[in-house]
């Protein structure tokens, strides 16, 4: 068979036996090139993301939003941009975020993100959100193991579930928790998760305490969470880096940061790699089926 191959057959077998390192190199180039030379591909926010954004926008100034930052560095590109955009939205609207994390790798990232937002500056060098006081306008409770036990505990009391915040200060002395003593007093829950916690926030917190819940999750989890959105148990659903980019657009992160925000910056590369993958699937499948026909016809001749 090999000595009678036509140029097309040679190309087909070369593609079907392509060294995977060539594919890795192509993917690397398709990611890197658009990050160095942005194309500026357009994308439109989807209804799932707009619903979450609109809900937060509709909250009265001073409302407390519980943000559960249940993600670690392994999913940072997908979830962290959403966390930053949500914090900017909360502070700009005069909302009071209470942040906690249920994953052990979460507190460092969540605290860094909070500090980044608090230290944000206007183009003239002034603080973007001046006069914010910890324990009054926001709180960072840190990490607590237990998952569902923590959610149920928050339904009883913030102070007994988290006696101290991330810095070790007593929550009982914070004015915020004298006013908002339990989860049911919060106006909204936003779970930003790389793990399966959104499924637990529904029965143990949102439904139990009758507090609306929106979720930002990794793209891997997004498909399994659509039934919750369709049932209205998630008011909004922000899936993966694409969802975060849409939320960045809605919040206006480009104007806030003065540069292309991280998730939006990754969208060009995402689209180019997707085109490469689709082309690879079409080409490989075409040559796979054609090669089977060649082999069948050669087998028939033999």
């Amino acid at each position: 068979m090999a000595e009678q191959q036509t140029p097309l057959q040679k190309m087909a077998y070369a593609i079907l036996n392509l060294d995977r390192r060539i594919i890795f190199t192509l993917v690397f180039l398709c990611v890197t090139a658009p990050l160095i030379w942005p194309i500026g591909m357009d994308f439109t926010p989807t209804k799932e993301v707009i619903d979450a954004f609109d809900d937060i926008e509709a909250l009265e100034s001073g409302s407390v939003v519980l943000i559960s930052a249940d993600y670690g560095p392994s999913s940072m590109p997908e979830t962290h941009p959403m966390y930053l955009a949500l914090l900017h939205q909360c502070f700009r609207r005069g909302l009071r975020p209470v942040i906690l994390t249920l994953v052990p790798s979460g507190p460092g990232l969540a605290n860094r993100g909070l500090l980044d937002v608090l230290e944000s500056e206007n183009p003239d060098g002034s603080l973007m959100y001046p006069g914010l006081t910890e324990g009054v306008d926001y709180a960072f409770l840190g990490y607590k193991p237990g998952g569902t036990a923590v959610m149920l505990g928050l339904g009883q009391s913030f102070i007994t579930t988290f006696p101290n915040d991330y810095d070790g200060d007593a929550t009982s002395k914070m004015p915020l928790f004298r006013e908002v003593s339990r989860l049911g007093d919060c106006k909204y829950i936003f779970d930003i998760a790389s793990v399966g916690y959104p499924e637990f926030w529904v029965p143990y917190a949102a439904e139990r305490e009758n507090v609306p819940l929106s979720v930002c999750c990794t793209a891997v989890s997004a498909a399994q969470y659509y039934p919750y959105y369709q049932a209205g148990q998630f008011k909004g659903l922000v899936g993966g880096m694409k969802g975060s980019a849409e939320y960045e657009q809605l919040v206006g992160m480009e104007e806030i940061l003065g540069k292309i925000p991280p998730a939006t910056n990754g969208m060009d590369a995402q689209s180019v790699v997707h085109i490469l993958i689709v082309l690879a699937i079409i080409v490989a499948n075409f040559f796979f089926f054609v090669s089977r026909r060649w082999e069948a016809s050669e087998g028939g001749r033999a």
Partner: peptide, 15 residues
């Protein structure tokens, strides 16, 4: 979605 997620992680690292 899984493919998109894995590409996102690569994008984050190259960023």
């Amino acid at each position: 979605y899984t493919v998109m997620a894995r590409v996102s992680l690569l994008i984050g690292r190259i960023q």
